[in-house]
Nucleic acid binder design. Structure first.
Lengths: 254, 254
DNA sequence: AAGTGGTCTAGACCACTAT
DNA sequence: TAGTGGTCTAGACCACTTT
């Protein structure tokens, strides 16, 4: 019944570079953040929003979709769209942050510290879905930032002479190359797991910190176009150099 | 020039419950995963996709948007849409996993172990943007799963008698309540940080593990509708009970 | 029955890139 | 200039919920 007052900024400016859907999403976000609509409140119906802001139904739908995806509202068919209470579960941490931190630093380097052919033990064989005893390539790398080792990478690669995967891996000498672009050589998807660990002797000495310092361990398995695993390994990241941040609620990104 | 062969499944079935845009996104995902389109390849233009699958431009656009958001393709205005190589930076870890693990367990409980009024020291005052020496509420909680302590929560709350925030906090006795729904009482947004830590004596004994075991530390600051911080705290999560997994590439979720 | 969100159409116009 | 993606319209029809 009560229509919230609309300030000057709560209008869509067609002369702007910013698309209408971005503007409207921002308007609704701001209103929710300011408490105009509170958790549990129902938003105006899509028809009302169309009339209020002078946009077409498709544009309003797009906005609602965006807000729903970011966890700010929830839309129920036949009932309406409602503001969601803050939910920690909506928080997402992006590995990209880690890359940013490294990439924005000019002085990053990848140093190959070992690469040799070994026979797969039971665990490696299981992870790579190959027969025990088969030959695999074992690679160890250290990542430096300003001459300081910050990340330690170990990886087992299925050895297939027909594929240039291993050769390509040897040429990885940049941060960028290690985190991206590996797909060009036949990788299609990957499973990642992140957990908290304490560094063992070997890891700690390589990373030049005390043993039993904290670290993130990011385990990865990469698959080729036949969905067969071809790479299994871990990134060990010094906790003092890496953390992840995010924002939830109406003020959140995207 | 060369048109990829279309299998029987690579058609949109209008009789299905699954919307056309979901079907088309799945088709393109599968083709990319199978290597029909490889990293760097250009997808058919939107017009071609419309004709090929008999859908309207808006539907194709929606599909492209979805694939672009999940990092599988990148669209460039004026140039085309291209398959992206696998990029670790695309990986996102969702805190919801943590909630799922706890919530799906029937036997979870939250136990309040301390709640008292203290005066804000320099750090608390800075984090909550209040004057040093002001009174704040200090709360400590333990979260149990099958009678085993798995998470330890400490929190400082701005004490404002006009607001029911503190009272509401005391009533939190379930997992669900702790992670959700706190927004009903005037919280609007939050900043979260996750890092790897080793447990200190006190934390370890409360969580009944050895000291210097690994753990996740999730720090949080929650804001009210005036964007003023009202809560600062941490969740300490035993690493042996929590890890996060995700999938990147053409086979990824959403 | 009325109101809600969910999908989809068949175009339009614009901005940008390549040639 | 031709081709590409990006935005947007003004409806349509459907599924669902509430009254």
């Amino acid at each position: 019944m009560k229509v919230p007052d609309r300030r000057e900024t709560d209008r869509i400016d067609r002369g702007l570079y910013e698309p209408a859907y971005v503007q409207l999403a921002g308007i609704l976000r701001r209103q929710i953040a300011a408490g105009v609509y509170r958790p549990g409140d129902q938003l105006p119906s899509e028809g009302q929003l169309c009339a209020q802001y002078g946009v077409s139904p498709m544009t309003v739908r797009r906005v609602i979709n965006i807000l729903a995806e970011s966890g700010v509202v929830a839309a129920f068919q036949g009932r309406g769209t409602f503001v969601k209470p803050l939910d920690l579960g909506e928080a997402t941490f992006r590995l990209e942050e880690l890359k940013d931190r490294l990439a924005n630093h000019d002085d990053t380097a990848v140093r190959l510290i070992e690469a040799r052919i070994v026979t797969a033990d039971e665990k490696v064989a299981r992870k790579l879905a190959i027969a025990e005893g088969r030959r695999v390539v074992y690679i160890r790398r250290l990542l430096f930032q300003d001459e300081i080792p910050v990340m330690y990478h170990r990886e087992y690669l299925v050895y297939d002479p027909r594929r240039p995967l291993v050769e390509a891996e040897f040429e990885v000498t940049t941060m960028e190359g290690l985190l991206k672009g590996r797909g060009s050589e036949g990788l299609q998807a990957g499973d990642l797991t992140i957990e908290a660990v304490v560094l063992r002797e070997e890891e700690a000495s390589l990373l030049r910190v005390e043993a039993s310092s904290p670290a993130f361990c990011i385990e990865h398995i990469f698959y080729d176009f036949d969905a067969h695993p071809v790479s299994w390994g871990w990134f060990i990241c010094r906790a003092d150099r890496f953390k992840f941040t995010t924002r939830i609620g109406a003020g959140a990104r995207r």
